[in-house]
Simulated assay, not measured.
Amino acid sequence: MAVIGECTTNGNTITGNFRTLTVSLKARLNSIERTSLDAPDFRITAGPGVEIGAGWSQVSGDGEPYIWIWASLSTARSRFRMLP
């Protein structure tokens, strides 16, 4: 899977720069309290009041934790995995 961004953590907040062929942006993954088993662990924002997606904490078959992200970038929807 292609790497489209780099992130850093600060407490419960993850920030990073993401770049695709059509989009380049700074985003923040804000940890939220889950309201159900299917609810996301993170809300992804690209500025004040601009929510672009959500993230779910996952564990790979090798036991490595990662964040599975669904984001709407421009007119195309993107899904990707992010390693912590």
Rank of each mutant, 00 (worst) to 15 (best):
N17C: 00
R81G: 07
I44Y: 06
G55L: 06
D38G: 03
N30K: 12
A39D: 15
A2L: 14
G5C: 09
E64V: 04
I67C: 00
T20I: 05
P84W: 02
F42W: 08
V23E: 14
C7D: 03
G55C: 03
E64P: 00
R77Q: 14
S78H: 15
R19K: 15
T13E: 10
Y66G: 02
L21N: 11
I32A: 02
L37Q: 15
I32C: 01
I14H: 02
I67L: 08
N17T: 06
V59G: 04
S72N: 11
S74D: 14
W68E: 14
G61V: 07
T45Q: 04
S36N: 08
G49K: 09
S31E: 14
G61C: 06
E51D: 13
R77I: 10
R77A: 13
I4C: 11
E33R: 00
S60G: 12
W68T: 09
W70N: 09
T75W: 02
G63L: 02
G16R: 05
R77S: 15
L21S: 11
V59I: 15
F18M: 06
W70P: 01
P84V: 11
T9H: 01
D62P: 01
A46D: 00
T15C: 06
T35E: 06
V59P: 07
G16Q: 07
D41G: 11
P65V: 02
G5Y: 14
L21Y: 04
A46I: 10
V59L: 13
M82E: 03
I67S: 02
R34P: 09
S57I: 08
R81Q: 13
W56A: 04
I44P: 01
Y66R: 11
T45D: 07
I14C: 06
L25E: 13
S78M: 12
I67Y: 00
D41W: 05
R34Q: 09
T15W: 01
T9A: 12
E51A: 10
G55H: 07
Q58E: 15
N17S: 01
G5Q: 13
I67H: 04
W70T: 09
F80P: 05
A27Y: 11
A27W: 13
S24D: 11
P65M: 04
G47L: 12
S72H: 15
F80Q: 03
T45I: 09
V3R: 12
G61K: 15
L73S: 00
M82L: 13
L37C: 07
I69S: 02
T20M: 05
